[in-house]
């Protein structure tokens, strides 16, 4: 990335503000459709951060897969289950919310202290950043990550079949009219008469 360092820091700050703001909107807004569109905003801002981190291919994949597929899928799900329902009030619900918020803030404090006190083994940045990350990722995918790559394709197939089976409407057929089953277990020829054989 050939930007000046100040520009990088400022754009990272703007993108981080966008990510956190839209993520809070996803979680806190009451209208689910606004949440779904703000989720698209989260994904796009995160792909901007990926571009700042010299990952152009993954940024493109992020926009294609998340904004193009997952977000649209969520919007379709909202359309399929859109029923205005007022959730019944639960007693002592605010205690749960406050407790969860406290736990999350504590987790964030723990994680940030861990991040700040750990001595990371920062590798020296190369003079020229990687010109073509797609070639490098492709080499990884077909040499040392070949087995996970194939397993991921099988996983996608299984997810597709499973989603179709789970979401399919089951038609319960009308009960078929009972037909008399004709001579299914009887032998076509009669056994020979014993009396005749005695004679």
């Amino acid at each position: 990335m050939n930007l000046a360092e100040g520009v990088q820091v400022v754009s990272f700050g703007v993108l981080a503000f966008l990510v956190l703001g839209t993520a809070l909107g996803v979680v806190l807004l009451s209208n689910i459709v606004y949440s779904a569109f703000l989720l698209g905003g989260v994904f796009i801002s995160i792909s901007g951060i990926y571009i700042l981190l010299n990952a152009d291919f993954v940024a493109a994949a992020q926009i294609l897969v998340y904004v193009g597929a997952v977000n649209v899928l969520i919007l379709f799900a909202i359309m399929l289950v859109n029923k205005k329902e007022d959730f019944s009030e639960l007693p002592r619900r605010w205690i749960r919310k406050v407790a969860t918020a406290l736990v999350c803030v504590g987790l964030f404090a723990l994680l940030s202290t861990m991040v700040l006190i750990t001595p990371w083994a920062i590798a020296p940045q190369p003079e020229i950043p990687l010109a073509n990350t797609i070639v490098t990722i492709g080499k990884h995918l077909f040499s040392d990550f070949l087995l996970p790559f194939e397993i991921a394709s099988v996983l996608l197939l299984m997810a597709m079949v499973g989603a179709i089976i789970l979401a399919r409407r089951d038609f319960i057929p009308e009960l078929a009219v009972e037909e008399p089953i004709a001579t299914a277990l009887t032998l076509p020829e009669r056994p020979r008469e014993l009396i005749k054989s005695e004679k």
Partner: peptide, 17 residues
Amino acid sequence: ITVAAAEAAVGLAIILA
């Protein structure tokens, strides 16, 4: 990203069911 896409599809199908 792959696993997340698969998870979203199956999760939404489960929610629909």
